[in-house]
Design a protein around this nucleic acid. Structure first.
Lengths: 112, 112
DNA sequence: CTGATTGCTACGTTTTATGTAGCAAATAAT
DNA sequence: ATTATTTGCTACATAAAACGTAGCAATCAG
């Protein structure tokens, strides 16, 4: 796995601009979901698997590694969870949840 | 392509909870990036391709279709761009950009 | 020392994305 | 009217990513 951190190029951007790095990681399957499931409590590898609809361990492991490399998640005796850095990102996901709710209300009203 | 809108099941969630639908879509390759590139101005299909590092038309078309189905993007004589619904999501991406910047500053300080 | 749990790897199959070519419709230029 | 361009998009063969299942070494509990 190639190094992936702010300041380094990622797929589709050689500038290493932080937002590009972040979108590159979050745009991978299950990344957002993993962060979402950790929003309230730390979870073990297998707990995460369950919550993420039995995601394959291959991918889960890969994502966890990436997210830890980026200092968004860490791992201790209580399982995987946010770092201080990551907590702030978790807040954004909560905000996104609020948005999603309103978006759904409005969208469902017009279409079906 | 299967129907994808709030209220309908998505990969890894049969509840159809809006956040799940949103994460399912945004977690696909290039989805976040496409929204990001449209944050300031409308762009044509080919302009989007350029901005997104020459993303293949197959995927670009697929994403645009999904994002339009979800009422996040639309298309008019000036190209593709946000709907009113989508604009709000765009704001969240801008917030994410601010976060990414601070995250990068802090992370780069500690790791290389 | 036995059994369960935890984090993780191997590996063959399926799904998704890539890259290149090109087409039909709309617009602009000659 | 007739080219030439631009635009949105599809076809299709190749490559990359994710899936699903099995299982292993390390830790912890009984």
């Amino acid at each position: 796995m190639t190094t992936k951190k702010p300041g380094h190029p990622v797929r589709g951007s050689n500038t290493g601009r932080p937002i590009m790095v972040l979108m590159d990681v979050l745009g991978q399957r299950w990344a957002l979901r993993i962060l979402w499931e950790l929003r309230e409590e730390r979870l073990t590898f297998r707990q995460l698997q369950e919550r993420c609809d039995q995601i394959s361990p291959t991918v889960l492991n890969r994502r966890l590694k990436e997210l830890r490399d980026l200092d968004l998640l860490d791992h201790n005796g209580n399982g995987f969870g946010f770092t201080d850095q990551g907590k702030e990102l978790g807040q954004h996901l909560l905000a996104l949840n609020d948005y999603a709710q309103r978006w759904a209300d409005r969208t469902q009203k017009t279409k079906e």
